[in-house]
Amino acid sequence: MAIELIKEKYTGPINTVEIGAGQGMVKLGGETALPFLFREGDMPNKPLIALEVQDCEPSDWADPVRDAFGDAVKDPVKWAKKCVSEFGAKILCVRLQSAHPDFGNGSIDASVERLKAIAKEVKVPLIVIGCGDDDKDNELLPKASQAMKGSNCLFGIATQANYKTLTATCLADGHSIIADSPIDVNIAKQLNILMADMGFDQKRIVMHPTTTSLGYGMEYVYSIMERARLAAFIGDASLAMPFILFVGQETWKVKEAKEFGEKQGINWEIATAAAMVQAGADIQVLRHPRSAVSITKYIDKLMER
C-alpha cells in the first residue's frame, strides 16, 4: 500500500495586497500554505523582486552595486529607467534618502519632485521609503503620499514609535503600508492592530519582520516568519499580511559581501534572498541587478508545479 503523506490543513489565507494601478499592477501574498508546498495549499502570486533606487547618489553603497549602474546612479530618473528597461524590474523601491540629515539634509520638496519625476518616467509600481529620520519623514512622507495619490504605492516604513502620520496620510491617499516589527511577532501584531484602529484596512499592510544577511542570524528571522505564518494560517488575522524584506540593503553592508569582489557580493545577496523566499518572503528589495535577475529565475523554477 502506498504511504499517504500527512497534509496540513489550514483555514486562513494570507491577505492579497495589490501595488500599483493599471497595467503594471502586481499582487503580493494570497498563500494558503507554507512556501512551495503546493500539495498542501496554493501560492497564487509569485514572490517578487524589486530593485532599489535612491533619490540621490548612494554615497554609502558598496562599490560593486554602484558600479553595476554606472553613471546612472547620479540621476535618479535615469537610474530608475535603467532598472526597468535594462534589468527588467517589474517593481521599484524608491528610497527618499536625500532628505536625511546625515545624507545632505535635502529639501523635502526637492525629494518629492524627484519621486514624481521617477513615477512619470517609469510605468512600474513603486514602493516608497522615507529617509529613516522620524521627524523628517513625518513631513516628507505625507507630501510624497499626496504626490503619488491614485498610484496605489506601498509606503514605508511605519514603526511602533512612528506610525500615525504615515497611516493617516496613506489612508487619505489610498496607498498600502509597510509595518515594521523588529523580529517580534507580538510587536507585529500590535502595530497591525494599532493601524487598524486608525481605520486603516489591515489587508493593505505588508509586514517587515526585519531583514538580515546570510551569516548574521538569518535563521532567527526565518523562525519568526514561520511562526507568524503558522499563526496566520490557523486564523490570526492580525498576522495574515505578506512579508517584505530589504535583502539588498542588509547584504551589501556586511564585509563578506562588500569587500571580496563583485562575484562574492552577488552570491551573498542571492543566497540570502533564496533562503528568504523559502521563509515566505512575498517581495524582496535587492540592490544588485544581476542578483535580481538570478533570483527571479530561481523563483520561476520553484513555481513550476
Binding site: N186, Q190, I193
Partner: peptide, 12 residues
C-alpha cells in the same frame, strides 16, 4: 509578552 497590549495582542 503577548499580553503586553490592551487588552491583548490576540484580539480573538
Amino acid at each position: 509578552i503577548a499580553a503586553l497590549f490592551f487588552p491583548h495582542t490576540d484580539s480573538r
